[in-house]
Amino acid sequence: MSKPVVATASLAGCFGCHMSVLDIDERILTLIDLVEFDKSPIDDIKTFTRQCDIGIIEGGCCNSENVENLRLFRKHCNILIALGECAIMGGLPAMRNGIPVRECLEEAYLNCPTVDGGIIPNDDELPMILDRVYPLHEIVKIDYYLPGCPPSADLIWNALVALLKGTPLDLPYEVVKFD
């Protein structure tokens, strides 16, 4: 039987959730025995090569590229997991949600004390910034949510084991944390 295929992505996240995947320590050896990775920063595969069983997404959507990437994941993954606070509710990037985009851009590129004669970047190559940061489930259907900033390695491990074995997810008190 072929191994289940996993894909991962970091959208508007800090890669902390991916670091937490690596935090499963030596269990990572078991993991690569159990699954294959497709598109993911872990193996640096940039485009999907096949339909995947599990997609794991860190970060919410703050620009048009995030949205395209997320839709691509939804299309290519049978199960999609929102990993971490940013994927679930926007997280730190969503702190800009109450502030108009123009004000944010002006603060970052024109008015910030370290800027000297700045301009607001506006190049066709750059993805368009969204009016606010969107959690993943506001854009596509999400099947499972794993909270934490970052989620603990044990939570990620327990979730993968439950999915791969088809057993109920083990959620002891220590593994569900929002920070």
Binding site: E85, G91, L92, A94, M95, N97, G98, C149, F178, D179
Partner: peptide, 12 residues
């Protein structure tokens, strides 16, 4: 509300 636990001093 807007609950950003990772940046909240009360977290924990």
């Amino acid at each position: 509300g807007n609950h950003m636990c990772p940046v909240c001093e009360k977290s924990g």
